[in-house]
Design a protein around this nucleic acid. Structure first.
Lengths: 219, 219
DNA sequence: TATTACTTTTAGACTAATCTAAAAATATAT
DNA sequence: ATATATTTTTAGATTAGTCTAAAAGTAATA
């Protein structure tokens, strides 16, 4: 069995390696787990002994098949619990991350699969992140953000790239939730900020930093 | 914040002190947690420093008010999760203990209370154990077991004193589940084994060891 | 290509929780 | 009441995960 800590390392490595190709650096892992590079090196050695990562000194790491399977199953747990918390227990989308961070480590295939069934096999979590199925297949959506849209183009909000409470809160207050329809009415050349219409009624200004993190499906 | 381990000690002490009065002995804690007396002594010192138990060397321990509150809240979590697993996720009553053992340590008052509401404020868990309410009040039921009944007396199953998979399994196969009605038709003097009628149709023989662990409400 | 800067690893120390073995305290029994 | 048995505590080690500081390796730059 693997400890919570080991699982968190695997998850972090999985997320980092889907961003950039090549080996995942010690420093980037340390940063994403709020720990020190030396701790990461120690843990990497341990995971390497367990054949969960491939590792050559100074060359960064990559998950093995087995390591990837574990990472994906934890992500599946995490996202299913988030759906549960929002849909069944009336939590807001900005409140569920930390709890899911704990719940995800409860290891029971049966629990996960029954929860999945109870929730009627959701495909996305409350932030639009795709939920891996029983077999670990992930259904990623296109990586287009609001910032990629041009003047007069339209889209629907399908996800976020940033999960901080403050960002999610801001979005909710602006009615920019999953499913919201957006039309770009203007783009300021200077700072790339946008004026958009939300759900055909509300006019909103949005900074480039905010629009870059909002995943959109073009209409 | 307290570690999972500390919480498990508090829970064990709580359960042991409700059985016998006076200080809970080091050995009994060690036995109930499958650990060694020396480890218990160490942990007791730590809990004592945190003012969660009262401790005098060689005299056993007792929970302080604060320690008791923590223990009760963990038990509340445990039993609510058991209800969830059985009622919503279709687990059997003999499958839920170990999972609840993990889930109980997720510390969020909001999560617990919302779960309670979602389950419509259940009073008992799937084994008939009472669920403490928001304020920690526990609604214990009378401690009469099947073994206390005399010939021709009747009762309803309201709980179990033993939670092992094998015992619960045996009960289920004999239709001795919560709510089953029992009439004692015969008691063998030699070994105190009983012949009983379950739900007015089924005749069953039950050993004293088994009947002593079945909590009954007399009819 | 040498020097500087940055990243990664090693060495050694710390904390939490555990263990074994031995010592100290308490309980039991002749 | 004294010897014996049992329980509890102490002392010292071990393991997982972390840290700081220093050494080693890699990358970037003049």
């Amino acid at each position: 069995m693997n400890s919570f800590t080991e699982e968190n390392y695997l998850k972090a490595i999985f997320k980092l390696s889907s961003k950039n190709s090549g080996g995942v650096s010690t420093n980037s892992i340390a940063e994403s787990l709020n720990t020190k590079a030396s701790s990461v090196t120690d843990m990497i050695k341990k995971l390497s002994d367990k054949k969960l990562v491939n590792y050559k000194k100074y060359q960064g790491v990559n998950l093995t098949k087995k390591g990837k399977e574990i990472a994906v199953s934890i992500i599946r747990n995490h996202r299913l619990w988030e759906v549960f918390l929002v849909e069944k227990l009336n939590f807001k989308w900005d409140e569920v991350h930390d709890l899911a961070e704990d719940l995800e480590h409860i290891k029971s295939k049966k629990l996960t699969d029954q929860l999945d069934a109870f929730l009627e096999f959701p495909k996305y979590d409350p932030h639009g992140d795709p939920i891996p199925d029983k077999d670990g297949n992930i259904n990623r959506h296109q990586d287009i953000t609001l910032a990629d849209l041009k003047k007069k183009e339209q889209g629907v909000v399908v996800g976020v790239k940033e999960h901080s409470k403050s960002y999610l809160n801001y979005l909710e207050n602006t009615n920019l939730v999953l499913g919201s329809e957006i039309k770009v009415t203007d783009i300021i050349d200077f700072d790339k900020s946008m004026t958009i219409t939300v759900n055909k009624k509300q006019e909103v200004n949005i900074s480039n930093q905010a629009s870059k993190n909002l995943i959109i499906k073009k209409l």
